[in-house]
Design a binder for these strands. Structure first.
Lengths: 350, 350
DNA sequence: GTTGGCACTCATAGAGTGAGAGTGCTAATC
DNA sequence: GATTAGCACTCTCACTCTATGAGTGCCAAC
């Protein structure tokens, strides 16, 4: 996009003004609020040009201009400068991050909560992608005849469990044998290398009759697979109702309707993550603006996520969904700072 | 409330009409829609009387009447008749209840989801009150030096666990000793009879040095206490935005804001439960209408809950939050049927 | 390339109006 | 005493009309 300097400044000013006032901005108010050393007529010419390029648009003939999705994109890519948070803002976030929790999941939920409170928007986090983490322990505990609990400890300091059904005849000792055999052979293996075949061959060494064995192995396998399923934590949906951007009930309804399907949102975040990886992006955050988002009802939103790291190979996403009319530089540094704190706290778990 | 028969019928008709049309109902339309064998003038006299008694009110001088909270209360207490669901409606619910899940928690979430879809309102469920359930198993598994997992199996078929910190020096064998000692002494005890003192005296029998022992016992105690904390599952908040009753953004915001604080809602449900118990109520459901609800922003809502039973002594609540302008008899029978199915499914777990 | 001037456009808010629904009251009737 | 017909009155809602004002595009001049 070849824009001369003044046009860049004009676009920058339009985005800033529109974000802070929520009113279409006209050439005259632009002159009043900023020190362009030209007249409003000149800006009008520039604005006509910017509109021609698709960077800004008019809600109707006699209104000012508002940024288009493309305009926001240009702003985010080349115009804005991200400033670090003030010490006070940093302190505010640090105070909210609870460093006393004993489970990674609680820490992530806590960070999500902090992010929603800090930004005033919807925040979200994905559970860590555990495919690359490896099994440190696996125990099968008999609960009662026909029922057992599979407990797994993963390298990333994460504990998962699942209640499974087992044959009624199996006794404590047999279960322990199977449990021991699986643990012995699979400890140290990354989750994504564990298949039904691996589990079955591990189980061969247990001295338990074949038919009984088979069902338990299958259940153990299912429990392991379930352990690396992705969860999403969404918070602060109701905050969207306080924004003027969603003062139309219809929009608000569509938005919250979509967000209520957390599986769909999780799928989308996953898609974003994969797309960024394939594109070889090395940005510390990913951003989707307006129509770039393929979820229904999020046309007026922007999606910003960053990646946190539990270990070198185990990571997840944390970010916000806000109105596309947001203070991008601020929100990005808020996300970035929460992510940083989250990463620090996570060191305790690995 | 001494009302003659016709006045009862008039109130009944006003509630029915208002619920179905969402328009204030006037004397004339009352005549048209129902077969009162009197003139509209007579009904006007009756309506004036009902208004005098505080059962109905006028939004403004020249509008029809709408039921007041007191009017709905009278309707619910003495006028409505609850009909069983049609076979088709029953089937619809049965299809949604997933009988393949292996954990009680999943079953409850599933029932909550079903209830929200069936009623179109917000549904909620409380986790079972486990104070009266007793410990069937307790195991402490070493995760890594300084960290252990306490796994508890409770009589109600519920499995709970918690990661805890332990002294770094403790080895596997010592942990197993402690775990065994606690389990031996506390198995069969109801959770609400287990105190720090009980746990400590149980631990005495483990052959482990006192200072190390003490911390583990405390953590085990904390884990047990955490096991009977109440959780709440809320679902379908966004559905409220589709109701004409919340077409004003302000109301919708207040409502969803309050519902987003699930701890507060849980506290309120608990209060309702306790109040009902103290009053010795033997109704199969509890109901709060409009201003009777002490939560902010729920003035236009009604709260209906029923009690499900996991065992004789272990129960929880399930219900809905909807607009007070709702089809009470229908919603109550929907809740009742879901509760019944939930109770049936729960038998598998005990 | 920049500027002042001007005609034109369009959303918005406010005032005024008529229709319609509903009420309360009174006097007559059963 | 309960019921009814009739009627004047009230109030909301939808509609139209109008004035206002912010903002634009374009042209001619600098």
């Amino acid at each position: 996009m070849q824009l001369d300097n003044r046009k860049k400044e004009v676009l920058h000013a339009i985005v800033d003004d529109y974000v802070s006032t929520n009113e279409p901005v006209g050439s005259k108010s632009l002159i009043e609020r900023h020190s362009f050393n030209v007249s409003s007529a000149t800006l009008r010419n520039d604005m006509a040009e910017l509109e021609h390029l698709g960077l800004i648009e008019k809600p109707h003939t006699s209104a000012g201009r508002i940024p288009s999705d493309k305009g926001y994109r240009e702003y985010v890519n080349s115009l804005m400068t991200i400033e670090a948070l003030s010490p006070r803002e940093q302190l505010e976030i640090e105070k909210r991050i609870d460093s006393s929790v004993d489970e990674v999941t609680d820490l992530i939920k806590n960070a999500t909560h902090t992010l929603s409170e800090t930004t005033g928007f919807v925040s979200l986090a994905m559970s860590p992608r555990l495919k690359k983490s490896f099994l440190k322990q696996l125990k099968i505990l008999m609960i009662e005849p026909g029922k057992a609990l599979v407990v797994m400890v993963l390298s990333a300091g994460v504990v998962k469990d699942k209640v499974v059904r087992i044959p009624n005849f199996l006794n404590d000792e047999q279960i322990m044998k199977i449990s021991g055999a699986i643990e012995k052979h699979l400890t140290g293996k990354p989750l994504d290398e564990i298949t039904l075949v691996t589990v079955e061959s591990a189980g061969k060494n247990a001295d338990v009759p074949e038919p009984l064995l088979k069902q338990v192995l299958y259940e153990a396998y299912a429990a392991i697979k379930q352990a690396d399923e992705l969860n999403i934590y969404l918070e602060g949906e109701h905050r969207m109702l306080s924004l003027p951007d969603f003062s139309s009930l219809g929009r608000a309804r569509d938005l919250l309707g979509t967000l209520s399907d957390s599986g769909m949102v999780a799928g989308y975040v996953n898609e974003m993550e994969n797309a960024a990886r394939e594109a070889g992006s090395d940005d510390s955050y990913m951003i989707r603006i307006g129509q770039e988002i393929t979820l229904e009802g999020l046309d007026d939103c922007s999606f910003i996520t960053a990646t946190y790291n539990l270990t070198d190979s185990v990571s997840g996403n944390i970010g916000v969904i806000g109105p596309k009319r947001m203070l991008y530089s601020k929100v990005i540094s808020q996300i970035d700072f929460v992510k940083k704190k989250l990463n620090e706290e996570m060191r305790r778990f690995i």
